[in-house]
Simulated assay, not measured.
Amino acid sequence: MSEDPASSRQSSRNQDKTWINRLMSGFSSEPKSREDLINIIKEAAANQLLDDEAVSMIEGAIDVHERQVREVMVPRSQMVVIGIEETPEQLLPTVIESAHSRFPVIGESADDIKGILLAKDLLPLILNGTEDFTLEKVIRPASIIPESKRLNVLLREFRENRYHMALVIDEYGAIAGLVTIEDVLEKIVGDIEDETDEEDEDGFIRKVSDNEYVIKALLPIDQFNDEFGAKFDDNEFDTIAGILIRAFGHLPSRNEHVEIDGFEFRVLYADSRQIHLIRLTIPES
Rank of each mutant, 00 (worst) to 15 (best):
F158W: 01
N152C: 08
G177R: 05
H100Q: 07
G173V: 12
E182F: 01
K120M: 07
P146H: 11
N152K: 06
I96N: 04
E97Q: 14
L92V: 14
E182Y: 04
N161I: 05
K114D: 05
A99V: 06
S109P: 06
V184M: 02
M165V: 10
L185T: 03
I144M: 11
I144H: 01
L127V: 09
I113A: 00
S148L: 13
Y172F: 15
I169H: 01
N152D: 15
V138C: 04
A142D: 09
V153P: 00
G190R: 10
R150N: 09
K114V: 03
H164D: 05
I192Q: 08
S109H: 09
V168S: 03
I181V: 14
V105R: 03
L135F: 01
T87I: 06
A166D: 08
I139H: 01
I144W: 11
P93W: 10
G173L: 12
V179Y: 00
I113K: 02
Y163A: 00
E193C: 02
R150E: 09
E136G: 06
L92D: 01
A142R: 08
L125A: 03
L123Q: 10
I169K: 10
T94Y: 03
E193P: 00
E131W: 05
N161R: 13
F103L: 02
L91T: 06
K149L: 14
P93Y: 09
K114Q: 15
F103I: 01
G115R: 08
A110S: 13
E131V: 12
Y172K: 07
R140F: 08
A166R: 06
T134E: 12
E160Q: 13
E131S: 13
I144Q: 06
L125E: 07
L151A: 00
R156C: 02
A110R: 14
T87Q: 11
S148D: 08
E182N: 08
L185M: 13
S143T: 12
K149R: 12
V184G: 04
T180K: 04
R156L: 11
G173P: 13
P104I: 11
H164R: 10
K187A: 11
E136R: 13
E136V: 07
I106W: 05
T94N: 08
L91P: 05
S148N: 09
I181G: 00
N161L: 12
L185K: 05
L127D: 14
V189N: 07
E157W: 09
L154D: 04
I126P: 09
D183P: 00
T94I: 14
I96V: 15
P146C: 09
F133R: 01
G115D: 10
S101R: 12
V95S: 09
F133N: 02
L167P: 01
E182H: 00
A119L: 08
V138G: 02
N152T: 07
T180Q: 03
S109V: 10
K149S: 03
E97R: 15
T134V: 13
T87D: 04
I106T: 15
D132S: 13
L155D: 03
D194V: 10
S143H: 14
V95T: 10
S143G: 01
I145V: 15
I96K: 13
L125H: 09
T130D: 13
D112Y: 08
A142N: 07
N128M: 12
I188E: 06
E89A: 15
I181D: 07
T87E: 10
L117F: 02
D111T: 10
I106P: 11
R150Y: 15
E97T: 10
I192V: 06
L117P: 01
I116M: 06
A174C: 14
F158Y: 04
E182I: 05
K120Q: 11
G177F: 09
